[in-house]
Amino acid sequence: MGPLGLTAIGAFLLVIAEVVVFVLVAQVIGWGWAVLIGLATMLIGAMLLKREGVRAWRRFRAAVGEGRPAGTEVSDGLTGLLGALLLLTPGFITDAVGLLLLVPPVRALAVRQVRNATERRISPAAAGDLFGPRFVRAQRDTAPAQHTGGASVTTGGAGGTTGGGEVVEGEIVDPHPRRP
């Protein structure tokens, strides 16, 4: 089964879950209150959709205007728009997920996940253009070169990568602090 089929099955199961949750909530608080809460969250979602869209566009334009990579702003904007869209969608499950995506710590986590997923799917050069340069923290190793399955760089005399020479091991360091 392809991705489209799995998406259709997931959407169908979500609709069934939303109906079940709505009926359960309506039995507890009453049908009128359940409908009123559903309409209120849809109205809030519509207002937040406009606010998040304008905010994302301004931050994107500011990053482009300053010559900074706009990937973080795009990821944050998409996460905020998704949260607002989920609030706009009828149902208590989607409302709960939409509200969670608007809470700063959860939103920051979601932005990191969007960024990581994007970086895995595009080339390192494109990721650098989108999210900015990657910095590497390295230390010189005086022991003979050994391949341990991790990444190692062997440098030659003129700084090029050639066989033989010293091994420099390092880790990628994210230069951009996470903002909520």
Results as ranks from 00 to 15, higher is better:
residue 128 G to M: 11
residue 79 T to H: 03
residue 40 A to I: 14
residue 145 A to T: 08
residue 156 G to H: 00
residue 86 L to P: 03
residue 91 G to F: 00
residue 62 A to K: 08
residue 156 G to M: 07
residue 139 Q to I: 13
residue 99 L to N: 01
residue 69 P to S: 10
residue 140 R to L: 14
residue 121 R to Y: 05
residue 122 I to F: 12
residue 113 Q to N: 04
residue 155 T to R: 08
residue 59 R to P: 02
residue 111 V to C: 05
residue 83 G to R: 09
residue 114 V to G: 01
residue 60 F to S: 04
residue 44 I to Q: 12
residue 115 R to I: 07
residue 137 R to V: 06
residue 140 R to A: 09
residue 140 R to P: 03
residue 35 V to K: 06
residue 150 G to K: 11
residue 79 T to E: 04
residue 54 V to T: 14
residue 84 A to R: 07
residue 103 V to Q: 02
residue 55 R to K: 00
residue 166 E to G: 05
residue 157 G to L: 12
residue 156 G to Y: 04
residue 88 L to S: 13
residue 92 F to D: 01
residue 151 A to W: 09
residue 145 A to P: 09
residue 125 A to D: 14
residue 141 D to G: 05
residue 87 L to F: 09
residue 61 R to M: 13
residue 121 R to F: 14
residue 53 G to N: 10
residue 36 L to V: 15
residue 125 A to L: 11
residue 39 L to R: 08
residue 50 K to L: 12
residue 34 A to R: 06
residue 88 L to Y: 08
residue 145 A to H: 09
residue 100 L to S: 10
residue 87 L to A: 07
residue 101 L to H: 00
residue 128 G to K: 05
residue 74 V to Q: 02
residue 43 L to R: 10
residue 145 A to N: 06
residue 128 G to N: 12
residue 164 G to D: 01
residue 143 A to C: 04
residue 83 G to T: 10
residue 143 A to F: 13
residue 161 T to N: 04
residue 63 A to E: 11
residue 63 A to Q: 03
residue 98 G to D: 08
residue 139 Q to W: 13
residue 125 A to Q: 13
residue 65 G to E: 15
residue 138 A to D: 03
residue 93 I to L: 15
residue 65 G to S: 15
residue 42 M to W: 07
residue 96 A to L: 14
residue 72 T to R: 03
residue 116 N to I: 09
residue 104 P to N: 01
residue 41 T to R: 11
residue 134 R to L: 11
residue 81 L to Q: 11
residue 41 T to S: 14
residue 89 T to D: 02
residue 112 R to N: 06
residue 112 R to H: 05
residue 50 K to T: 06
residue 91 G to D: 00
residue 55 R to C: 00
residue 165 G to N: 03
residue 80 G to V: 09
residue 153 V to D: 01
residue 98 G to K: 09
residue 37 I to L: 15
residue 62 A to S: 07
residue 114 V to D: 00
residue 110 A to W: 08
residue 60 F to E: 06
residue 152 S to R: 09
residue 110 A to M: 15
residue 117 A to L: 14
residue 162 T to E: 13
residue 75 S to M: 12
residue 51 R to G: 07
residue 161 T to A: 08
residue 146 Q to A: 15
residue 42 M to C: 12
residue 41 T to D: 02
residue 90 P to Q: 09
residue 34 A to G: 07
residue 126 A to T: 14
residue 47 M to V: 11
residue 99 L to H: 00
residue 107 R to M: 03
